[in-house]
Design a protein around this nucleic acid. Structure first.
Lengths: 110, 110
DNA sequence: TGTATTAATCGTAATATTGCAATATATTAA
DNA sequence: TTAATATATTGCAATATTACGATTAATACA
């Protein structure tokens, strides 16, 4: 039905999935990479950098902002975005912990 | 349009997004967690464990298999799934590397 | 004030995802 | 062979996502 039954899962599972979902689009990955690369923060050059229309970029930015992973600051007519370090660290920690899980090869079936 | 313009992005960006996308559903997170937790591999108990219908679980399993993150083995009438360690390590590495990026706080704008 | 610039929002079309009932397939056991 | 069991596949409905043109809102500058 296109609707995710979040109530069937633990808060941790939902949290992990929410984070991963936001990272699950190349445009958003590209935006984050660009913000990391350009030491000084960047504004709407993201539209030029990535080849998508301005409203599309704006929409992706919104999702990253919703997750708290980036933040913006108005400077004149443009807006300067950058990584929200605290949130990035927290999110990175959460996902990395999940990724660092290891299985027991001795008990494998396949 | 619901269609992602993959050609606008680097292979790395697309790869990261693809991995994250697969992890971007709580049912798939739950499946992975269960496979890690149950030391011996588990079969269709996943359907009981997670409260979704059998075809739905089967579909999620398929996506995890497509990514290569899990593998299955037929034992009688049931199928035993487990983490594909090599792939998990590789994927984990790829994502972790992305997550370990740090921004320069001195050059922040916001 | 008016105009230019930048970015957000709205509306909408195209496509993707999620979930499940029904069905198909495959294996085991009788 | 037939029945039972376990899983995959198909088909479909509901919802979500992606993308963009048009518009709006906000600021800067003349």
């Amino acid at each position: 039905m296109g609707i995710t039954k979040s109530d069937k899962f633990t808060p941790e599972q939902n949290r992990l999935a929410t984070i991963a979902k936001v990272l699950g689009h190349p445009a958003r990955v590209a935006i984050l990479q660009h913000l990391f690369k350009i030491e000084s923060c960047i504004c709407g050059d993201l539209v030029d950098e990535i080849g998508l229309a301005q409203p599309t970029i704006s929409q992706h930015i919104k999702e990253l902002k919703n997750l708290g992973i980036i933040k913006g600051n108005i400077t004149g007519t443009s807006i300067c975005y950058c990584i929200n370090q605290e949130e990035w660290l927290s999110i990175s920690e959460t996902l990395s912990q999940f990724l660092s899980q290891k299985s027991n090869p001795a008990k494998e079936c396949c």
